[in-house]
Design a protein around this nucleic acid. Structure first.
Length: 994
DNA sequence: AACCGCTCT
DNA sequence: TTGGGAGAGCGGTTA
């Protein structure tokens, strides 16, 4: 048994890579999505370097139908069509595998698992091979034996796993591996459309197989079961047996086992090199061929690589140089926070808590670059071998992570930090909620590969004393603070009386600007940009659930490794991102908008909003009565009780029992659609429709707001502290969670009652709400320069009336209510990238009429049409749209051949600059207002932000001056070619303030 | 976990 | 013929 054979299930690995990279795809400069290829190659290389197989083969499915389709027509019938990325990737992967001289294994009529199964058993029979089936697919469990194993590749922070008989039996709680088939047969498999037996999931399947052994025995002994389960087993017996057949991997594929062919061979280096160049896999190429490999010229010609941007021949446009200007040209920000980023010399502020070491001596040592300061030589060092294997294969990193746990060491560390222009820090705590959390430790880094961890004990006083040692450096305005999601750490430190000062560099937000739609999670960014897999937090504290630990429960040595690494990695990410921000001209947006906003949001969250708990409790009681009432009425009309909240049951009642609307629409999953629009249409036809709509409204308000909000009222101050997320919305907007305070009802009378419950903190205060009037349409007017729109806005004419007058060709005075309503819908449609169909739906008019209205609109508003066309054209050329401050949104489908995808991208091209510029404007206003309020030590507080609105808890004595200043700042936040207007109101609750 | 439906701007 | 204005978060059901 000295031979080691790896058989890869290519399609399964490719799909897995596709989903893994779904959120942050790798795209070449030519727009080719190479995520799947990259993911596949990573898995392949991982195996080659780490497992050193002697033999290897890569198995593919074929596009032909297989014997399973003959057994079961619907086999894999509900699969989505293959994603384009994958279709494109497969030929490349086959080429690469060929170039590596690894055999491709496939046979029409069979799937990869049958081929792998057959070969693995043949290999086993020779007695010479140890075979690993490389796949994330659980079906393979049935094939495992003493010389055949599953190799589950590393995935999302989990190391690779080898699964043998013991692991499989343990995983499924079974006695023989072939019982995997019985379990899968019972459970079914949604992905492959294997039906299984209804009502049986993994847990039930395990229990039944433990008891009966096989599906056949289960069916024979169905008497012993009870109720619905018995019924199902009896009724779906055939389906269960069929499912078992489908889940069975066949071991009789007519394919020879040829050890010679499978033997690992030399690569076709020139071909491989050319392929790597074409795919722009620089690091991968190095790992495959050696870093200094240069292909022979002849080989390059075979698959010509794209000339790099720098080497582009004269006359050929470099895509990235061809940056489209913003609608009105990227302009300098109209404000400045005093520190110009070029001129300032950091001011050294002595640290009060000071140094115990001799300053002179220490400074000399620091100046001596590359050497470890003497004071840190003592305590703690981790060894690289402690890293799990999977991490090592990606990157072997030498690092120096140290525990700082004595008064002397802490003082020294604080002193060294005080000498830095910037340092990176991270806090370890007991909870993800900063309000709930206690500090467990702080980690710091200021040089790559070196980091320090300072544990903070549970005892309040001791903790405070330790934090106080670092108060000076945190509050030193000359030192920039680097971190990942700094708002969290800033809030955390505020609880310990530390006001973090100085410029910030938040890696999460830097990446949000660089790649707004990708994930900004540190582990993923480390993988993507540093090729390094950090210790996952799950490895330390376990999965979410009752058994989850807090950081305080974890062994110190592990925490040091984890926490110090976080600071180190974050520091390295900062080094990576800073030039990228520069390259994309995102610096000002980052330094002057996103970074200052972090502090503003932290303060808003900390303040919180007072909610009248009593009012909500009363409202809950009346809603409860009303819900029961409507519910009974619905049951009476329907003739039976059912779950009105179940769209499935409701659909059956409406469209099958009551036979409403014979051409009832179905959703794409085959259920009846019962949304608001559908039910509204049914209102005339049947009284039940109105009742259901009422029921829905009541239940929604009660469950989502009235009953949920009180649970989030803090015991400490009786207020609700939402959390604003600065890095989720692709356009630059903020979002709000826990709870979402950006979707508090206002439309309906009952909704208004909920808004009324948002009240000032005391009698001395009132709620003041300030919102931009028509911010998005004004921005559209400014960007397009349309004279009619500009005229209306600059002269205070109602924009919808003005639009109606133009589109319907009547004087302003003759615009009817209906005309204005239509114009309003059109105006909104414009912002979102209108279609005739969309407009006809919303206006409930025929499609032709909608098309005519749109034509009329564009005839009258030619500048708007021109702007829209231009924006799309620019996006086609440079691949992104941008806001007035240069915030980008990449539109990868803008040139897609798929009409739906392309049109979606086109709508985004129009909407993103508008929605995003509005967000830019509000963010600047927030920062300036926050500054103003702080500078004047106002008692009033900013408490909410809702896309175009700011809400304040305003002290009565400050009301007039606050109103005036807020209005002025908001209107002038970004000078535009159009007049900006605000609406400001006050009242004893949020509703009245509107 | 995915889907549906509904709340907001 | 299908799917067709944008951006979010949350609660419930179903599988």
């Amino acid at each position: 048994m000295n031979r080691k054979l790896f058989l890869l299930d290519a399609m399964a690995l490719i799909y897995r890579a596709h989903f893994a990279f779904n959120k942050s795809p790798r795209i070449t400069t030519r727009g080719l999505n190479t995520s799947c290829i990259f993911g596949f190659m990573n898995s392949l290389l991982e195996v080659l370097t780490k497992e050193k197989p002697t033999h290897i083969g890569v198995a593919f499915d074929t596009s032909k139908k297989t014997f399973r389709h003959e057994q079961f027509e619907q086999y894999k019938a509900n699969r989505q069509s293959q994603p384009e990325d994958i279709t494109v990737a497969i030929p490349y992967i086959k080429q690469i595998v060929e170039a590596m001289n690894i055999p491709l294994l496939w046979l029409d009529g069979y799937e990869a698992d049958d081929i792998i199964g057959t070969l693995s058993q043949k290999a086993c029979a020779t007695g010479e091979f140890e075979t690993y089936m490389m796949t994330p697919d659980k079906d393979y469990g049935q094939l495992v034996n003493d010389c055949v194993f599953i190799y589950k590749p590393a995935f999302m922070g989990k190391p690779a796993e080898k699964l043998g008989v013991t692991e499989i039996l343990d995983r499924w709680q079974i006695e023989r591996v072939d019982q995997v088939i019985d379990i899968l047969g019972l459970m079914g498999d949604a992905v492959d459309n294997i039906p299984g037996i209804p009502g049986i999931g993994e847990k039930t399947a395990q229990k039944l197989i433990a008891e009966f052994g096989t599906i056949e025995n289960l069916i024979a002994g169905a008497d012993k079961l009870k109720g619905k389960q018995k019924e199902n087993v009896v009724n779906f017996a055939q389906q269960g047996l069929l499912s078992k057949q489908l889940a069975t991997i066949h071991l009789d594929v007519p394919i020879p086992f040829d050890p010679e062919a499978l033997q690992l061979k030399e690569y076709d280096k020139p071909r491989l090199s050319a392929l790597m160049d074409e795919l722009e896999f620089r690091q991968l190429k190095g790992r495959l061929l050696g870093a200094d490999y240069e292909a022979a010229p002849a080989a390059k010609a075979a698959t010509p690589a794209k000339p790099s941007a720098k080497a582009a021949p004269a006359g050929q446009m470099d895509l990235f140089a061809q940056v489209a200007p913003t609608p009105s040209g990227t302009q300098d920000l109209p404000f400045d926070f005093g520190d110009s980023d070029t001129t300032d010399q950091p001011v050294r502020v002595p640290v009060a808590s000071g140094a115990s070491a001799t300053p002179d001596q220490v400074v000399t040592e620091v100046a001596n670059e590359g050497e470890q300061p003497a004071f840190l030589d003592v305590p703690y060092e981790t060894e690289t071998p402690e890293l799990s294997d999977s991490r090592q294969t990606i990157h072997t990193v030498r690092h120096d992570y140290r525990l700082v746990d004595t008064p002397e060491l802490r003082q020294d560390l604080a002193y060294y930090l005080s000498l830095q222009e910037s340092f990176c820090f991270d806090s370890e705590t007991t909870s993800v909620d900063p309000v709930e959390a206690d500090l467990v430790g702080l980690s710091f880094a200021y040089r790559k590969g070196e980091a320090f961890y300072v544990p903070v004990p549970a005892d309040k006083d001791e903790a405070q004393a330790i934090v106080d040692v670092f108060k000076g450096v945190f509050e030193n305005p000359a030192i920039r603070k680097i971190g990942q999601n700094l708002k969290y750490d800033i809030l955390m430190l505020k609880k310990y009386g530390v006001e973090v000062q100085g410029k910030l560099f938040d890696t999460m937000l830097a990446h949000y600007l660089i790649e707004p739609e990708q994930r900004h999670n540190m582990d993923i960014m480390a993988m993507t940009y540093l090729n390094y897999q950090p210790v996952s937090i799950e490895e330390l504290i376990g999965k979410k659930g009752p058994k989850q630990l807090t950081m305080r429960d974890v062994e110190m040595q592990k925490v040091v490794e984890y926490a110090a690494e976080d600071a180190d990695i974050t520091l390295q990410l900062k080094e990576t991102f800073a030039p990228l921000l520069e390259k994309d001209s995102l610096n000002k947006l980052f330094e002057q908008v996103e970074m200052p906003l972090v502090n503003v949001l932290a303060d808003i969250e900390l303040e919180g909003v007072r909610v009248d708990q009593k009012a909500l409790a009363d409202l809950s009681a009346t809603l409860d009565v009303d819900i029961r009432q409507v519910q009974q009425e619905i049951y009476t009309i329907a003739g039976s009780e059912f779950n009105i909240g179940s769209p499935k049951q409701l659909g059956e009642i409406l469209f099958e029992r009551l036979k409403l609307d014979k051409n009832a629409k179905k959703t794409r999953t085959g259920q009846y659609a019962t949304g608001e629009e559908i039910l509204s249409k049914l209102e005339e036809e049947h009284e039940i429709a109105r009742k259901i709509l009422d029921y829905r409204e009541l239940v929604k308000l009660k469950n989502t707001y009235v009953d949920a909000l009180p649970l989030l009222i803090s015991k400490r101050d009786g207020r609700i502290h939402t959390s604003f997320n600065q890095a989720v919305a692709a356009t630059g907007r903020l979002s709000s969670t826990n709870p979402n305070l950006q979707n508090i009802p206002i439309r309906t009378p009952r909704g208004k009652e909920i808004r009324k419950a948002f009240v000032p903190r005391s009698d001395e205060f009132v709620i003041m709400s300030a919102d931009y009037s028509q911010i998005e349409l004004r921005i559209m007017a400014a960007f397009s320069g349309d004279p009619t729109m500009l005229d209306a806005f600059n002269n205070g004419i109602d924009i919808h009336t003005s639009t109606a007058s133009k589109v319907f060709g009547v004087p302003i005075a003759e615009v009817t209510g209906d005309m204005r309503r239509k114009a309003k819908t059109i105006n909104f449609g414009i912002i979102y990238g209108i279609s005739a169909f969309g407009l006809s739906q919303r206006l409930k008019i025929p499609r032709k009429e909608a098309a005519r209205i749109i034509d009329d609109y564009f005839a009258q508003f030619a500048a708007v049409k021109g702007y829209m066309d231009e924006t799309i054209e620019k996006a086609r050329n440079c691949g992104y749209a941008e806001t007035i401050l240069g915030r980008r949104r990449y539109l990868r489908d803008i040139n897609s051949r798929n009409q739906t995808d392309r049109q979606f991208a086109e709508r985004n091209a129009i909407n993103a600059p508008i929605q995003g510029s509005a967000a830019d404007m509000l963010k600047i206003a927030m920062i300036q207002i926050h500054d103003f309020m702080q500078a004047n030590h106002l008692k009033s507080k900013m408490i909410l932000t809702v896309h175009d609105e700011l809400v304040f808890d305003a002290h009565r004595s400050e009301l007039d001056m606050l109103r005036e200043n807020v209005d002025h700042i908001m209107r002038n936040a970004i000078p535009m070619a159009v007049k900006m207007e605000t609406g400001i109101g006050t009242g004893d609750n949020w509703l009245e303030a509107h």
